[in-house]
Amino acid sequence: MTHPILALNHINKSFGPIDVLHDISLTVRAGEVLCLLGDNGAGKSTLIKILSGVHIPTSGTIEMDGAPVSFQSPRDASGRGIATVHQFGGTFPLMSIGRSFFVGAEPTKGWGPFKIFDRKKANEIAIKSIRDFGITRIDDGERLVGGLSGGERQSLAIARAVYFGARVLILDEPTAALGIKQAAHVLRIVNQAKKKGLAVVFITHQVTHAMAVGDHFAVLIRGSIAADFKKGDKTREEITDLMAGGSAMAELEAEIESDAHHAHVA
């Protein structure tokens, strides 16, 4: 049997007296999209920070390919192929596509201390990587990142992570700030990353987006996993209900209904 790329076993995290995550166990497999659903404050961002090495869990273990690992810093995690793409893509609006693609890992030519940033090569690789994800509109690596649409920026960030050898892609609310068309575009790219054999952790609170690409779902409520199920096991309404805490949503519906009733009587 093959080990999952990444596995969390009974992770707990507390900041001083406040428990943020309780007993989280999750597995992420190659070629699979794990959707992490949860309302604001459910602990999604803390979980991402544990996965990407920003926070160290209070207790519990992390395994990669079946072997225990511990991330002391974001660099540890990225060194092992875990790439995090944040909501706004982590790209630099006033830099050219080629330059921003290679921030921190610039290709150089020349010798000794007189290294030269190889702009031509950087632009070529950046453009090719983005085109591999089906964005054909972009053909000039000198263009500013700020000139790209939100979806294209996300795609650029994902293409960058893939180029630098990411095996696990953590996408933090990639579609939250996007319009419908742009979001669809990003979802298509997520699907392509999955087909390339990457493990994807897709964090979102938009159930529709999650259902479009997810293979596996985990719903996080107040720091615990409230549900863990596979594609097709639950309907959209059931998931939304779960995320909102079920009863809270039902109460709201009842309230609105009775308001409408009162209005009708008056």
Partner: peptide
């Protein structure tokens, strides 16, 4: 390149 990146978004530059 690092100078531009840091001025553009220090957090992302650190992540990179």
């Amino acid at each position: 390149n690092g100078v531009f990146a840091m001025g553009g978004d220090a957090e992302s530059a650190r992540n990179a």
